[in-house]
Design a protein around this nucleic acid. Structure first.
Length: 467
RNA sequence: GGUCCCAUCGUCUAGUGGUUAGGACACCGGCCUUUCACGUCGGUAACAGGGGUUCAAGUCCCCUUGGGAUCACCA
């Protein structure tokens, strides 16, 4: 059995969106699982709409997700001579012909046919014209498709799909300006690159029979096809900006982790029993194209958020700390050197943050000297007794030696016993003094991370400002 | 309109002729608790409709309905 070769072939007319990312992921997974090759090809035959920025954005997105490629990126714009050569070959074999109908004429015919309820397909005006030398008129080249019989394939996801050839018309494979069109170059490239399995979006199903016919005309091996269903928005319409972000990199900027994105994307349309959590490594083992569902799926931001929270909760604090730095910078914390160790800070926040944005927001107070205190909290938890309690606590803390969670808890207990109060009478005030907020990490954790000196400063600052 | 595809809780899905139709997100309760969370336990909630086939249908077939894709000198 020869090795499988898969490819992801985006057109560089925008960023990498979630639908494209999922398609890329499925291709990558199958290649990795079957120890084949994963090829990246940039479909830039539409020179006018293709941009280098888009290419860069797509590569950045794939890299962020962890999808590496074995070959490429190849650019179709580098292959124009090759395509031309194949066009000539088809013409001389009588499998393609020059068509002199103008775009305007065709458009008019199409509209007329549509208006009369007919099929808007090419009427074959030039199909049987003698193919002599050019007479100087502009022309396109059309593929001479068979007009009878059926074309079918066994789609790896959708099963057998068949079309009547009579429904297909003679598609244009070369434009007036001599450049080739998509349906043609895709076939040439997949054939010459030895692609064995084409996993692509659902919206290509209708192109597939034409492409199969082209493979046959070219006497090339037809690959296997797998058409993955589309991703929809909450209103079941095609996912678009209206539903929220569609760019993969926008999710990074919104504080999502790549492993959450990968996990979410793969589960949208694919499943493995009752399991929900999958790493890329798991997926290489467990993924199979046969278990991809046939129907379109709604993108559910809540579930993505849940997965993100899961990965933050279980992530390595050191790694998360590294990822957090840019988000802290955005919030004005450019240097954490003067404050507590970032990984220690992260540990106190991991269970409380669903995104890196929340993690950054939650970490802010550790690095701020001037806190703004929650007013309602102050009114509720600060009273004339508070300064004495806070100072009493600080004394106890100074006496415990090493500031561990257990020792800190002991200090609180002792204080409460001595003063005959409950934890609730001092805890909230401490929380407010240290974090400025009524919602924060555990008090003991904060003291441990802040250290004795900084804890003392914060208690005194709060007393000075609030009492 | 033609062609093609799709159809289990609100959402993602398991299910491959015999199940109390399972899990997850979300939602609602209980517990845990120094706040917020986490966690944990429990609950509400689905086979689009109609015909067949079969002893038996969410599972197979047909029709209806409803969604979607596509019909470019875009990809």
């Amino acid at each position: 059995m020869s090795q499988v070769r898969l490819r992801f072939a985006p057109s560089p007319t925008g960023y990498l969106h979630v639908g494209g990312a999922r398609t890329a992921l499925f291709n990558w997974l199958l290649a990795r699982k079957q120890q084949g090759k994963f090829i990246l090809r940039i479909e830039d035959t539409d020179v006018a709409r293709s941009t280098q920025e888009s290419v860069d954005a797509i590569l950045e997105g794939m890299t962020w997700l962890g999808l590496d490629w074995d070959e490429g990126p190849f650019y179709q714009s580098d292959n124009f001579p090759l395509y031309k050569e194949h066009v000539e070959k088809l013409i001389s074999a009588g499998k393609a012909y020059k068509c002199y109908c103008s775009a305007e004429e065709l458009e008019a015919k199409r509209e007329k046919a549509l208006k009369e309820g007919g099929k808007p397909k090419y009427d074959g005006t030039c199909r049987n014209l003698p193919q002599g030398a050019d007479d100087g008129r502009p022309y396109v080249v059309r593929f001479k498709a068979p007009q009878e019989g059926t074309t079918y394939w066994n789609d790896l996801i959708k099963g057998k799909i068949s079309f009547e050839n009579a429904e297909l018309d003679d598609l244009i494979i070369q434009r007036t300006d001599g450049t080739p069109t998509y349906n043609f170059v895709v076939v040439i490239d997949d054939a010459t690159m030895g692609v064995t399995t084409v996993i692509r979006g659902d919206d290509h199903v209708n192109n597939t029979p034409r492409q199969i016919l082209l493979y046959e005309a070219l006497e090339a091996t037809v690959p296997q096809f797998a058409h993955v269903p589309m991703i929809l928005g909450a209103d079941k319409a095609r996912l678009s900006k209206r539903h929220g972000a569609t760019s993969v990199m926008a999710y990074r900027d919104m504080g999502f982790l790549p492993e959450a994105m990968v996990n979410y994307l793969v589960r949208l349309g694919w499943s493995y029993g009752d399991e929900e959590i999958f790493s890329l490594e798991d997926l290489i083992q467990k993924f199979s194209i046969e278990n991809v569902g046939r129907s379109a799926g709604v993108f559910n931001p809540d579930k993505l958020l849940w997965l993100n929270a899961h990965y933050i909760k279980n992530g390595d604090p050191v790694r998360l700390a590294g990822l957090l730095v840019p988000f802290l910078k955005e919030r004005g914390v450019t240097d954490t050197a003067g404050g507590p160790e970032l990984p220690a800070v992260v540990k106190t926040l991991q269970e409380r943050a669903k995104t890196m944005l929340e993690l950054a927001d939650g970490a802010l107070f550790y690095y701020q000297q001037e806190l703004s205190y929650d007013e309602k909290g102050v009114a509720k938890f600060f009273n004339p007794e508070t300064p004495a309690l806070l100072r009493g606590l600080f004394e106890k803390l100074g006496a415990v030696g090493e500031l561990t969670t257990v020792a800190i808890e002991g200090a609180f207990k002792e204080l409460c016993e001595e003063k005959g109060i409950k934890l609730g009478q001092v805890g909230p005030a401490v929380r407010l003094a240290l974090s400025g907020s009524t919602a924060s990490p555990g008090i003991y954790e904060m003291i441990e991370v802040l250290g004795l000196e900084e804890t003392g400063k914060r208690l005194e600052r709060a007393i000075a400002k609030l009492c």
